[in-house]
Design a protein around this nucleic acid. Structure first.
Length: 272
DNA sequence: AGTCAAACCTGGGCGC
DNA sequence: TGCGCCCAGGTTTGAC
């Protein structure tokens, strides 16, 4: 599942490649995931890429003339840098071609991902980026800010961690890992968190995400970087995907259940 | 308003 | 062996 660290890895891969290249064209096998339409991308032809950046789980490519292409990988999406001459990759749904034969292949088994073309003054609204909360790896994500978001709010910890309008970029994997690091049960009501637990959770979110980035993402099912390579963070997970196995810290069997409608794993021994 | 479940998708794993 | 059911989860949508 591409979450903040996986999207950041892809963006970091694209940053040395795309700026300066001209857009050549979009070819689409699955037009319904291209918004507002495949035809709209004709307006982008001949324009150069200025920069690539990330917001939450969105990949944003800024072009000349204040055009922005925004990509969301949702669950099974991949962006793979290929040569224009290369044949189609597995589950390739759309491709974006650039000068110098650079070709971005948007592969997505489940067709949940989306590609938008917008003007700069509209892209946040078009894509839903305007609804996103604080970037957890920015200076704005202070302990004070975190407490303001969590303290006294209705809902359990996991639901709030996954709420993109509060913190942008945390998904199921890093939510579970963060709760483990902090020693907090994911189904604990946020209102009942003690001071030390709020502190620990704030630190844990940052630690989990940064570790994910350092290891180039977590490849549990479909995620790969812009070169099609897997990350390494799946080897360092304490709870996600380990339901029924022994806790790596205390040896107790990890509990698998549903919290906030998502598969959730935690340790009853380590998470109070 | 706030909360929750369903829908979008499809391959893989499992049970029979 | 093979079929069919169910699960995975980011986000939007619709219902209560």
């Amino acid at each position: 599942m591409p979450e903040l660290p996986e999207v950041q890895t892809v963006v970091s891969d694209l940053q040395p490649i795309l700026p300066g290249l001209k857009f050549v064209g979009l070819s689409s096998k699955v037009p319904k995931v291209v918004l507002p339409s495949v035809d709209a991308f004709e307006n982008l032809e001949g324009l150069r890429v200025l920069e690539v950046f990330r917001r939450g789980k969105f990949i944003c490519i800024l072009f000349e003339n204040e055009k922005v292409v925004t990509i969301h990988l949702r669950m099974t999406g991949r962006i793979i840098v290929s040569d224009a001459e290369d044949e189609a990759l597995p589950f390739e749904r759309n491709r974006l071609d650039f000068s110098n034969g650079v070709s971005l292949r948007f592969c997505d088994m489940r067709k949940f991902g989306r590609v938008w073309l917008s003007n700069w003054d509209r892209y946040e609204e078009d894509t839903g980026i305007y609804k996103l909360g604080v970037e957890p790896l920015s200076e704005e994500f202070t302990l004070e800010k975190f407490k303001e978001l969590f303290d006294g709010r209705n809902g359990n910890v996991k639901r709030l961690l996954l709420d993109q309008s509060l913190i942008a970029g945390v998904g199921n994997i890093y939510a579970d890992e963060s709760c483990f690091y902090a020693g907090v049960r994911p189904d604990k009501e946020a209102k009942l968190l003690e001071e030390r637990e709020l502190n620990a959770l704030h630190e844990a979110v940052i630690k989990a995400l940064m570790q994910g980035i350092r290891n180039r993402g977590t490849s549990v099912s479909d995620y790969a970087d812009a070169y099609g390579k897997s990350g390494k963070n799946q080897e360092l997970l304490y709870v996600y995907g380990r339901g029924g196995k022994e806790c790596l810290r205390c040896g107790e069997l990890l509990v698998k259940c549903k919290v906030a409608g998502r598969g959730t794993v935690y340790c009853e021994g380590c998470q109070g």
